[in-house]
């Protein structure tokens, strides 16, 4: 008899037309094409199976095989991945890519092993921008303003560094809070600001490129090690190809969504002069020092080196 195909449930929280959704579908297609009968991938978009907070636990229980939560979601599993939240560490996505594909970035993939997870690859969303109800040009513009953040100690420290008030609120409430100005601002990538309609309720967006919002495709060690070596290599290859495809869409979407926001005229897009930007960098740089022990000074140096 033929053995039943290996089942991979890929659970994510966004729509199918997003870069992550497209990447997951591409992965399924590639596996169908290359490993027909041996592996079967089913994709569950829109938090149909689990939300980002619970998907890693479900993975450890063996009910989900793959997911791609944002890197900030791993802070309780490993401290070193916090490096991606550090402000002004990477100057652009090329630097991010260079670091991720370099030896240190690849080593980080296995930093979750102790908790039973393995990183399979990084998936881009893009560089983060800041939006607010008032124009943000210099750090003092953010002083005393309330910013919504994802749960992350680094991001909290980042806003505290410019005397802003970081607030954790569930994503479901953010739009109303921004709309009514109960919260002054938030940080996100161009594509998220566009797809979540934040640009409709935030009159100013500053192109700060101050941080990166990327995802980590993960699986559980138990599942990954249960596969034959050949199969594992093939799956990894298919995933790598799908990630390249997804990253292409992410880059393209970042640019086009930015243009759509500018064209909508609902939000004014501000750019920073080199001088202004430097002020932000200086104001936020102490955050690096604060997390140096947890993340590792060498790792931060290696990441910085990717800028050159």
């Amino acid at each position: 008899a033929v053995a039943a195909p290996v089942e991979i449930k890929f659970s994510h929280v966004v729509a199918e037309n997003t870069p992550k959704g497209q990447m997951a579908i591409k992965f399924k297609e590639l596996v169908d094409e290359r490993l027909a009968g041996k592996v079967e991938v089913s994709v569950f978009p829109n938090s149909q199976l689990f939300g980002d907070n619970k998907v890693l636990e479900a993975m450890l229980l063996g009910d989900v095989q793959m997911a791609a939560p944002s890197l900030s979601k791993f802070q309780k599993y490993t401290k070193s991945l916090q490096i991606f939240d550090l402000p002004f560490l990477f100057k652009d996505m090329e630097a991010v890519e260079k670091f991720q594909q370099g030896p240190d970035g690849q080593k980080l993939l296995s930093s979750l092993k102790k908790k039973g997870l393995i990183g399979l690859g990084y998936l881009h969303n893009g560089m983060k921008q800041m939006s607010a109800s008032n124009p943000l040009k210099v750090p003092s513009d953010a002083s005393g303003k309330k910013f919504r953040i994802m749960t992350s100690d680094v991001l909290q420290a980042q806003f505290e560094a410019v005397d802003a008030v970081p607030l954790k609120k569930p994503f479901s409430e953010v739009f109303t809070l921004l709309q009514t100005q109960a919260i002054d601002g938030q940080e996100n990538t161009w594509s998220n600001i566009y797809s979540k309609k934040f640009f409709e309720v935030q009159p100013y967006i500053t192109e700060t490129n101050h941080g990166v919002l990327d995802y980590l495709v993960v699986t559980s060690t138990e599942f990954w090690m249960s596969l034959d070596d050949d199969l594992r290599t093939e799956i990894q290859k298919a995933l790598n190809d799908a990630i390249v495809y997804g990253n292409g869409i992410a880059a393209q979407k970042g640019d086009s969504d930015k243009q759509l926001i500018i064209d909508s005229k609902r939000s004014e897009v501000l750019t920073l002069t080199a001088e202004e930007r430097q002020q932000w960098v200086e104001a936020m740089k102490p955050v690096w020092k604060k997390f140096e022990d947890e993340i590792g000074a060498d790792l931060i140096k290696a990441a910085e080196a990717a800028n050159n």
Partner: peptide, 14 residues
């Protein structure tokens, strides 16, 4: 805290 004192309670949500 937010409206009156411009502050957040970082553990409140959880």
């Amino acid at each position: 805290a937010r409206f009156g004192f411009n502050a957040g309670i970082h553990w409140a949500q959880e």
